[in-house]
């Protein structure tokens, strides 16, 4: 492995990181919105969302990525590869995040909500001031877990030709004829990324616990 192989690997890691990062950011917010919409129990929309969550949870990421990338032109949409990858990852992670947020809502103490109401808080203020800060803390472990699942699923975007951290090992071994070293380095990089995520979660939890005291 020479310098160019290393720089290719780092570029691959960067692609994995930014595509997963964008999908995580959209997915967490969209999941929260979906959970809120589901709480409102609007007749037809609720059933559609249930169907979406059930389908998105059962569909493999590879299949979803191929589906989006190949069939978008049929609907007259020209999708860039990166955009198709982000879209697939986001659709997948949003469904999981929505369930995480929803279960956090479901477990929220009723007394606090009633107390807020009796203090004359509007639903929006109750949500923003009372519920959301606590929900963040209770759903954080689940959300981080889902983030690490997303990063572990992100090699699926390689199937439409995005050169991510997994795919880049093929590129390198096509030149060096030694597939093992780049794959092992990629393994180490993945471990570093996911290790970092778990470590950040620990710090965040520690901080949150101190705040709650």
């Amino acid at each position: 492995m020479n310098a160019s192989a290393w720089s290719m690997l780092l570029e691959g890691a960067w692609v994995t990181l930014w595509i997963s990062g964008v999908s995580i950011a959209i997915g967490v917010v969209a999941g929260l919105l979906l959970a809120l919409v589901r709480l409102a129990r609007i007749p037809i929309i609720d059933q559609i969302l249930v169907l979406y969550i059930s389908l998105a949870r059962a569909t493999p990421l590879v299949t979803l990525t191929l589906f989006i990338f190949l069939s978008a032109p049929n609907f007259g949409i020209q999708l860039d590869r990166n955009l198709a990858g982000i879209l697939a990852l986001t659709i997948n992670t949003t469904a999981f995040n929505a369930e995480i947020w929803r279960s956090a809502f479901g477990n929220f103490s009723r007394e606090q909500r009633e107390a807020a109401m009796s203090m004359g808080m509007t639903p929006w203020v109750t949500f923003r001031r009372i519920m959301f800060p606590q929900l963040m803390i209770t759903s954080l472990p689940g959300l981080v877990n889902e983030m690490s699942f997303l990063i572990k699923g992100s090699p699926a975007i390689a199937v439409i030709g995005i050169v991510d951290l997994t795919r880049v090992t093929n590129r390198i071994s096509a030149v060096t004829y030694e597939p093992l070293p780049p794959i092992l380095v990629a393994c180490a990089l993945y471990m570093a990324i996911i290790g970092c995520l778990v470590w950040l979660q620990r710090i965040a939890e520690h901080r949150a616990n101190r705040l709650a005291e």
């Binding site: 090992t169 030694e178 597939p179 092992l184 993945y190």
Partner: peptide, 21 residues
């Protein structure tokens, strides 16, 4: 623990492309 930190596909690569070494 290390398996739980790896994507599935990289393990497949390890077995499919790496083991022939």
């Amino acid at each position: 623990d290390s398996m739980r930190m790896l994507p599935f596909l990289i393990l497949v690569y390890l077995l499919y492309y790496g083991l022939p070494s």
